[in-house]
Each structure stands twice: as C-alpha cells, then as structure tokens.
Amino acid sequence: MSGTLADEIRDRLGDLSPAERKVARVLLAGYPAAVFETVATIAERAAVSTPTVLRCASRLGYRGFPDLQAALRAELDARNASPITLYESAAAAQTPVPGATTGGDRSPDPQLALVQQALSQTFHEMSPHEFESAAELLADPRRRIHLVGGRFTHLLAQYLGLHLMQIRDQVSFLPDRDVERTSFLTQLARRDVTVVFDYRRYEDDMTLIAELARERGGKVIAFTDPWLSPASAHADVVLISQVNSASPYDSLTPTLALVEALISAVLDRLGPDAHQRMKDAEGVARRTGLL
C-alpha cells in the first residue's frame, strides 16, 4: 500500500468534474467518518445530486459507493492490525499444498522478496522534499534534538540518536520516568526538534508528545507507516516507510535503512564540524577508558 484513501482522493481531484470535486472535498473534510455517511447525506452536504456522489465514486475507480466504503474499511482494519490479527489472517489464508515441504526446508526466497520490495518502495516513494527538510533540521546546530519511540521503535530512536550524538551537540532522548519526562516536556522550546517514531498499533503518548512540541513552537519529525500515525497531524516532516513482512510483525528494516540514509545526509551537511566532533569524542573516550 502506498497511501490512504484520502491520498487517493486528493491525487484524483484534477480528474473530477466541479460537482464531483465538491463531493470529494466533503469526504476529505470529514475523513474518515464522512465516507460512511449515506449517499443522500453526502449529496446534501456537498449541495449536489445523489447521482453525482455515485459518479464521483466511479470516477475514483470504484464500482460504486459501497465499494469505496469497503476500501476504507479495509484500510482502517490494516491501520489497526496487531501481530495477532495479522497472524490469524495469514493462517486463514494459507492453503496446504500436497507434497509441500515445511519447517526448515522452506525456502527463504519469498521472505527476502518482501523485504526487498518494501525497501525499494520506501525509497521510491520517499518525498525528496521531506527527506531534505529532515536532514536540514537535524543538521542545524542551533537546534536541540529530542528523540522518542514506542514499544519496539524506541530502538530506532536510540540508533538515530546515538549516531547524531557522535557528530553534533544537544541531542537527547525523552526520559522514561514520569517526573523526568514531565520536566523534560515542560522545557520544550521554539528551536527544538522532536523526532517521533510511531508505527501501528499507534501509541497515544507519541501523539501527545508531538502535539506538545508543536504547541511550544518547535519542529516535529515523524517516522511512520503508510497508514500514518496520528502524530503525523502535528509533524512538520513525515517520513513514511513500508512495513511489508512475511511474519505477523511489521518489518522495520526499511525504516532502519531510511535512518542510515538520513545519518549520512546530516553528516554531509555538518562537514568538518562533524569530523572535529567525532575526533573530540574519541579523544575523550580513550582518555576515560571507554575505548
């Protein structure tokens, strides 16, 4: 999946008639709930006829309005999927093949192909503008950088943060303990950049952190999946990675590759300053016995 139904509607606005565009704007304004309204209600809100609503759905590539609604249901199911539901749906879809091998004899080729596809699609669909904006923000020495992630993605936040610490100053992780985290969030300021990693199933505190950072005038970079974390609504930069996997767990390999590409881009922008920072850090590490 390369985007949401809302993205698809926005992309097709130019293909719609003026009346159909009114319908599309009603759907986008109240997305996703508006899509589940009756055709008559949508027609009334858009000030168009009922047939116009039906034509809009057809022009968007659906057999009818129920088909469009079914597509949104599938999107929302995917957005809220957990490892358990993914495991159960995959198991239900499997059809045993007579004579097929199992266990250790199974070829890894399909799994490798999925990872390769996810990697390729992630970088193919990456917005150069979003990537460049993220690199510029992380390379700005006037800004403090704060990083936070979720259940699994805190590992990615640490991976990015530990690299940034070697090449620039003022990089930190949001504390885990309540009192320390509250104090930390209270001190967020206008020149700060908060980097949030949030993938399905999304975590409410990631959205609240992004919201607080924006309220205080800072910048927010959100790493997320194609279904978009709610934190994305508060982000200045959104970096999307595919998560296709042969297992019930979403793959974070494409995100790791994106993080490494971003580290390289930041390093290029910092230039000699990053080199000197690395030399200074290594000198301190050797002197204190850490290397």
Rank of each mutant, 00 (worst) to 15 (best):
8 E>T: 09
17 S>W: 01
20 E>D: 01
23 V>Y: 06
27 L>A: 06
27 L>Q: 04
28 L>W: 10
36 F>R: 10
42 I>Q: 06
44 E>V: 14
44 E>Q: 15
48 V>F: 01
48 V>P: 00
52 T>R: 00
53 V>H: 05
55 R>Y: 03
80 N>W: 13
81 A>P: 03
83 P>E: 01
88 E>H: 10
89 S>C: 09
97 V>S: 08
98 P>A: 03
98 P>C: 00
100 A>P: 09
104 G>L: 13
105 D>G: 08
106 R>G: 07
109 D>M: 15
114 L>F: 08
114 L>V: 14
120 S>H: 05
125 E>Q: 11
125 E>A: 12
125 E>C: 05
130 E>C: 02
133 S>G: 02
135 A>S: 08
137 L>I: 02
144 R>F: 09
145 I>N: 04
152 F>H: 10
154 H>S: 11
158 Q>T: 12
158 Q>I: 11
171 V>T: 08
197 F>P: 02
204 D>C: 09
213 A>H: 07
216 R>K: 14
224 T>Y: 03
228 L>I: 08
233 A>E: 04
238 V>N: 01
238 V>S: 00
245 S>V: 09
255 T>M: 06
256 L>F: 13
257 A>L: 13
262 L>M: 07
264 S>C: 13
265 A>P: 10
267 L>A: 03
268 D>Y: 08
274 A>P: 07
278 M>S: 09
284 V>P: 04
